[in-house]
């Protein structure tokens, strides 16, 4: 089966030679949950907007559900569901009215629309509030309604732009559960963007790490983490021993790939952390050092991101209109 989303050298340049998306190529297979991971301003939303025909690529091509986003925009639009990061539901309408409007905009027959509205309301757990005006909903409820609207016409691909932006952790987990259930029940392909490492880790089958408009790595979260070369052991020692002596002692251990001294701690990357740990104790005892504290953890996508881009999450400066939109969004989420 051909990929559901195919991008080839996709590029978008904004006025002032700002390259928001820079020759991005990737393919998403049928039934996959595929994530774009990167900080704000990395080009995630711009990519989604090109794939959903809201922005025109400056260069490159993209096909969604087999249709070209530039030459067959109407076919593309009919095949996709788009849930922006804006909570794009109308606060003045009720939940049902919002969904009815959505059904009409996607040209669903009346009977079918009524059935599906009841179905998606059940799916996102809003059936009991469907007749209330959206004004009275919490941020999480609005998000769920917005996702329900995106599902109504059973798109081949669902685009979720920062689906849990600004939501509390409990609501976030709920949304993750809905997305996973959805894929399990319908086999729908999901393309999402996020700057939450945990979200990419928990939700996505494959992740593309995007930084300054370019894809730096693509793979399963487990592969990306394994690519770092093992687990991370952090040590704190008594007194102030010679860093060089400690480092060379640690480097002598067979599993150890890398040792760094960072802010008073020794950060050891080792292929098999659990087997390495006793060897670390032995080696340090031999050179007469005493361990005060030790942690062993598996690398997170945070560590991967840091290793690949050399940077952590940062917020790039936004335009004025973007800042206003962001404020409105946050106000509605907190409502």
């Amino acid at each position: 089966m051909p990929p559901v989303i195919e991008a080839e050298g996709l590029t978008r340049v904004f006025p002032g030679h700002i390259v928001a998306v820079d020759r991005v190529s990737f393919a998403v297979e049928q039934g996959e949950i595929f994530g774009f991971l990167g900080p704000n301003g990395a080009g995630k939303s711009t990519t989604i907007m090109m794939l959903t025909t809201l922005l025109r690529p400056t260069a490159g091509t993209a096909r969604v559900a087999g249709f070209d986003v530039v030459r067959q925009p109407e076919r593309v639009r009919a095949s996709l569901g788009y849930v922006s990061q804006d909570l794009a539901v109308d606060d003045n309408l009720t939940g049902i009215e919002n969904l009815t409007l959505q059904a009409r905009l996607y040209h669903l027959p009346r009977q079918e629309a009524r059935r599906r509205i009841a179905e998606v309301l059940q799916l996102v757990g809003l059936a009991h509030r469907a007749r209330d005006r959206v004004e009275t909903y919490s941020g999480g409820m609005r998000k769920r309604l917005d996702i329900a609207a995106g599902l109504l016409h059973r798109p081949k691909v669902l685009f979720l732009d920062e689906p849990t932006l600004g939501l509390d952790i409990q609501t976030r987990r709920e949304i993750w559960r809905y997305v996973r259930d959805l894929r399990a029940n319908t086999g729908m392909t999901v393309f999402l963007t996020t700057h939450y490492m945990e979200e990419a880790d928990v939700l996505c089958d494959r992740v593309a790490i995007i930084d300054r408009g370019q894809i730096k790595a693509v793979g399963r979260p487990s592969e990306l983490k394994a690519g770092l070369g093992g687990d991370v052991i952090t040590l704190r020692l008594a007194g102030t021993p010679s860093a060089q002596r400690v480092t060379s002692a640690l480097r002598g251990i067979p599993f150890v790939a890398d040792v760094r001294f960072y802010e008073g701690e020794y950060v050891v990357t080792a292929r098999d952390g659990e087997k390495t740990l006793p060897l670390v104790f032995e080696a340090l005892q031999r050179v007469g050092e005493q361990i005060v504290a030790v942690t062993l953890k598996q690398p997170s996508l945070d560590d991967v991101y840091l290793a690949i881009t050399g940077r952590g999450l940062r917020d790039d400066t936004e335009g004025r209109e973007d800042a206003i939109r962001h404020r409105i969004r946050m106000r509605r989420i907190r409502a």
């Binding site: 907007m49 959903t52 809201l54 639009r77 804006d86 794009a88 959505q102 905009l105 040209h107 209109e321």
Partner: peptide, 14 residues
């Protein structure tokens, strides 16, 4: 445009 509803309509096959 600010609430995102415009994009929602523009992304629909209308």
């Amino acid at each position: 445009r600010r609430t995102g509803f415009l994009n929602k309509m523009l992304a629909a096959p209308i």
